[in-house]
Design a binder for these strands. Structure first.
Lengths: 338, 338
DNA sequence: TTGAGAAATACAATCGATTGCATTTCAATA
DNA sequence: TATTGAAATGCAATCGATTGTATTTCTCAA
């Protein structure tokens, strides 16, 4: 049951562990004959290097830590996939934690990863997170840190973000151009950069057409299906909007289904738009206009950044910010038949 | 930049590392005074235990390896989430790999995890995998192994699976009872247990009503949206089926959209059913009848199994199989208005 | 004051691999 | 044959924490 070590190989061949180690790494000072013998024996004995031991000795970790709010949200699952596709060929394994949108769990996760001496940490913060102390600790201990999507800007750290502002801005312009004027807007917590930027981009887009957004027509909460569904009731009591825009797709979906249930026609009575291009937005009826985020690309960019930071750890390079462009996807839910 | 060790604490307090180590673990032979002093100093110096060193010394890993075909498929993302929710409180971190449905990558992943000396491995095999040698190696090295969902039964290993047979069986009965008789069936590779079981369950369900499944009405391939979409063309050329059933939801979705595009009414002209209860099936129009798999529960069960195996490693217990019940979800796509 | 025994702490080996430096081996040259 | 220097291998420390076995310190009773 005990695994084979280089000492076992050495003993078998009447060599020392150091020679075996060097042979396995093709060290030039080991004769060809010995090298081949060692490799053959390693194969025979089913030797598998113990990377725990290697990490301890060399001080280099072979793993990268990743913290996301929820693994099973498609956006994050897709970024994880993008990250993995870069880190795996680079020889790093991924240790994945979910914060469950909980600040304390996030702090716990960071502690765990630091104990594991990961080579670097990639994080998208929980929506409860309103401070940066726990993130600063990471950098202070010399561990490369890359934030993505939901980021805090009050610390020195590289990050990968979407052009949220622009995405929402273009959406706003599209809607106005399609003839919508009285908007309701559903947003997530505005202390998170992503929702703040989407909100501001949206307002700016309207502003350029001199369209106003009534403050009483703004709802904020967690952008779930249920929240979207419930918000419609509140909104329809007031001055009827002719378009309901959500900073997240699931809430938009809730809006759509509540409207359909209430007998409203979308988009003829009311238009609906979301954000994130969740798969379902393409297949519901009517298909929902939304903004593609290219999550996979977001992930691979984050992974490349962290690899660079790990490689160039000695010299403290300035933090870099990479922006991934969004893309407005116009579908039936916001286009009236002329 | 270098991290603080127990030696640093020891030096500071004129103690030895062993005393510090024992103090931190509340060893009874260390005086209360020293214990508290050590803990205070550890706090002050920002000491973080190096779990690499601990693992090497104790021979116990603090991580569990997980291999799935694709992280960004909702079913797997959900199982991962379920696994994490169990392993994390138990003090294990998760190292996640994706095989990308590629056999060689899967073998690579296993090697990596074994080098990392994970405490156990949880796997759902790729659809290219048709042998078990690489899995046997895991057990042979004394590493607990748990398979889930897509499993190989030709080796001794615990596993967590759905009642695929029953799920499909119930679906078949439902369809016949709704008055459908001429079926087309879309399946994934039949060398995978899940597709084999679904197929057999489906046939058995039909058989009990003396309904036959024409072999020429069976299509097999990767159950993607595109595959579903394309299959319709082939099927409609023949004797028209009155229901198209897919062993996966995305293909069912492709079927649905192709039918709609061809001007067929679902379910009045043709019924459509899928498998997996992907979110989108609930929101498309008509909503698609499907089978819920409880992926999250599948994951937490797999995690519990591996924890048990890790705990009871000494005595070789018999491999266990846990079945997670499926649940037939009947929606509009298979229910004709009377 | 001394000795016994308990209490507290120190010593040293260990986990498996790596690596600077020392030592051995061997072939080629003087 | 002795010498030299390169080639090949061995020795031993190290990474940070743990743990069995000393050893020291202390307390209390005789």
């Amino acid at each position: 049951m005990k695994q084979v070590t280089i000492h076992d190989i050495a003993r078998r061949l009447n060599l020392t562990a150091s020679t075996v180690s060097r042979a396995l790494h093709n060290h030039p000072r080991i004769s060809k004959k010995t090298r081949e013998l060692v490799k053959k024996t390693a194969e025979e004995l089913n030797y598998r290097p113990n990377s725990i031991a290697t990490s301890l000795r060399t001080g280099k970790a072979n793993s990268i830590g990743l913290i996301v709010p929820k693994i099973n949200r498609f956006f994050f699952a897709d970024t994880i996939s993008g990250i993995e596709s870069v880190t795996s060929p680079a020889g790093y394994s991924l240790i994945i934690c979910q914060s469950n949108e909980n600040y304390r769990k996030e702090v716990e996760n960071i502690k765990t990863l630091m104990r594991s001496r990961v080579a670097g940490i990639i994080i998208s913060i929980s929506n409860e997170t309103v401070s940066s102390g726990h993130l600063k600790v990471i950098s202070e201990n010399g561990i490369p840190l890359v934030q993505f999507d939901r980021v805090r800007t009050d610390l020195r750290s590289s990050m990968v973000v979407n052009t949220n502002y622009r995405g929402s801005y273009e959406l706003a312009r599209h809607l106005v151009e399609e003839g919508f004027h009285r908007f309701a807007y559903l947003t997530g917590p505005l202390h998170l950069n992503i929702y703040k930027e989407r909100y501001e981009g949206f307002r700016q887009g309207l502003k350029e057409y001199a369209v106003d957004l009534d403050p009483s027509m703004i709802c904020d909460g967690e952008l779930t299906y249920q929240f979207g569904f419930d918000s419609v009731g509140r909104l329809l009591k007031k001055d009827l909007p002719d378009a309901i825009v959500s900073a997240g797709d699931y809430a938009a979906l809730g809006v759509l289904f509540c409207l359909k249930q209430a007998g409203k026609r979308v988009p003829d009575d009311i238009a609906v738009a979301g954000y994130a291009n969740e798969q379902v937005t393409a297949f519901c009826d009517p298909a929902i206009t939304t903004v593609e985020q290219y999550a996979h690309r977001l992930g691979s960019n984050a992974a490349n950044l962290i690899l660079e930071e790990i490689a160039g750890k000695q010299q403290a390079k300035p933090a870099r910010t990479v922006e991934v462009n969004t893309h407005l996807i116009i579908r039936e839910s916001t286009v009236r038949n002329k």
